[in-house]
Simulated scan of single mutants.
Amino acid sequence: MTEAARGLILTPSDGRSFRFDPGALCLELLLTGGPGPLARWESLYTSADLVRWAGESRLPDGLAPVVTEPEVADARRLRDALHRITSARVHGRKLPAADMAVVNEAAALPPPVPCLTPEGERGWVPGASGSQVLSAVARDAVELFTGPWAGRVRECGADNCLLLFVDTSRPGRRRWCAMERCGNRHKVRAHRARPADS
């Protein structure tokens, strides 16, 4: 996926699609549903769903994963653990030990295997397993939460939006999941709330 095309297309209940880049592979998995009220957004039901997500995510092209049904259940388990860990980080709570164990278990599995292409460039051995895909996601989470961007994980500032992202803006003041969605809505509400000039 090119840098310009980063992010996934989301279509909320109002039907207005928008591109959202959470800034990390592990946070892209969160867009497939989650625990509690996030269950209504569930999109990982079959192995084809996980393969489709992998193809749309920032995982490298060419993995062509082969996913089993039990690996789909593992993906949901990892995703839900990542939701709770990310929420705890954002709200300054202690990271849940059981959820960290889920991430560490997935990260301990072998990741996708790189290879040299005939052009001498980096490629990937096709046919990665679902477990290898989940290992890449879990390792990304370890890097995120122990690296320099750990303090820049945010939740959208809109009252009715639970999207999580890494604030990679230079000043570190990003508030919205996407300016064209929640940011613009906030601007419109603020404009309407201003008293009319006399």
Rank of each mutant, 00 (worst) to 15 (best):
E71A: 07
R185P: 10
S135I: 05
P111Q: 02
F145K: 13
R173P: 09
E119A: 02
V166G: 12
A190V: 03
P12L: 04
F165R: 15
W149A: 11
V113E: 13
N160I: 14
F18I: 09
G34P: 03
L95H: 11
V90M: 08
A190I: 02
Q132P: 00
P195H: 08
V102G: 03
L29D: 12
M179V: 02
G34E: 05
I85Y: 01
W149R: 13
W149F: 11
L29Q: 03
T2A: 01
L59F: 06
V125S: 02
A5H: 00
V103R: 02
V72F: 06
R16G: 11
T146V: 09
W53C: 06
A24S: 05
L164D: 07
W124M: 04
P112A: 10
V90T: 02
S87Q: 13
G123P: 10
V90I: 01
V137K: 09
L163A: 09
N160F: 05
A54F: 05
P35N: 05
E42T: 15
T146M: 03
P126C: 13
R154W: 11
V133R: 04
C177T: 00
S131I: 04
R52C: 03
R181Q: 03
D14A: 06
G7C: 04
L31T: 08
D61Q: 14
L164V: 08
V137E: 01
E180G: 14
D99H: 01
R170Q: 07
P112S: 03
R154Y: 03
V125K: 15
R181S: 06
N160P: 00
V133Y: 11
